[in-house]
């Protein structure tokens, strides 16, 4: 089994023994041992996910590391969080996924579940609300601008999140795109579309303390 550990809050180590690990392209910063790298367009996901991405123009650019040794990963100084799954599904904003391995099955879903209309709009605005799903038992690592913040959602307290700050979520949660409260429109943000992600149910939402596409 690949062994994941954090070197510090911005650096991940994965030890492999004749194994393979998938990570975001460009995130390998150093390695020891005998490891070969190869680009991979889909990781461990099926054809459907790949097809869906090509429809929406969203490419999750992955690479695989195969062999025996220790690989260090980091991504532009972003904070790294390790997440363990036990037979569950983790939803990760595509740009937030750093590394995982074949123990988890990957797929793609559209966050918001608003049918074709929502899908097209998401694709047109490039808002990236296609989310990678990882399912099974094993570890994965995500990156966030500043440390990732886990917010609990309970049935009596739905939570609203800025899509630009959304990193991922887990649990029995329903997500909707909500446009009624224009918290962005009236302040004249350049981010364009002003909608929020509303999560209801029971679970955990991960957000970052910054908006993607900020000036960092």
């Amino acid at each position: 089994m690949p062994e994941y550990s954090l070197i510090n809050d911005k650096m991940l180590s994965v030890r492999i023994r004749n194994e393979e690990v998938f990570a975001r392209r460009g995130s390998m910063i150093a390695y020891t041992g005998h490891v070969e790298f190869a680009p991979s367009s889909s990781g461990s996901e099926g054809m459907q996910g790949t097809a869906m991405r090509s429809v929406t123009g969203e490419r999750m650019t992955l690479m695989s590391a195969r062999g025996t040794g220790e690989v260090l990963y980091a991504f532009y100084g972003m904070h790294v969080t390790m997440i363990s799954l036990r037979g569950e599904t983790f939803f990760a904003e595509s740009g937030s996924l750093l590394a995982y391995d074949g123990r988890l099955r990957s797929g793609t879903v559209f966050l918001g579940n608003q049918g074709m209309g929502g899908l097209i709009r998401g694709a047109a605005t490039g808002s990236g609300m296609f989310t990678t799903t990882l399912e099974g038992s094993g570890e994965l690592a995500i990156v966030s601008d500043g440390d990732a913040i886990a917010l609990d959602v309970t049935s009596d307290r739905p939570i609203f999140a800025d899509p630009q700050a959304y990193v991922g979520h887990r649990g029995n949660l329903r997500s909707d795109l909500v446009t009624d409260v224009g918290w962005k429109t009236f302040v004249g943000q350049s981010s364009g579309e002003s909608y929020q992600l509303k999560f209801t149910g029971q679970g955990t939402v991960y957000i970052q303390a910054a908006e993607r596409g900020g000036n960092r």
Partner: peptide, 18 residues
Amino acid sequence: SNGPVHFIEPPVRVDEDA
């Protein structure tokens, strides 16, 4: 440094950016 410094003993191969 961007994040804490990590020391590695050779032999090691490193991305120039890091």
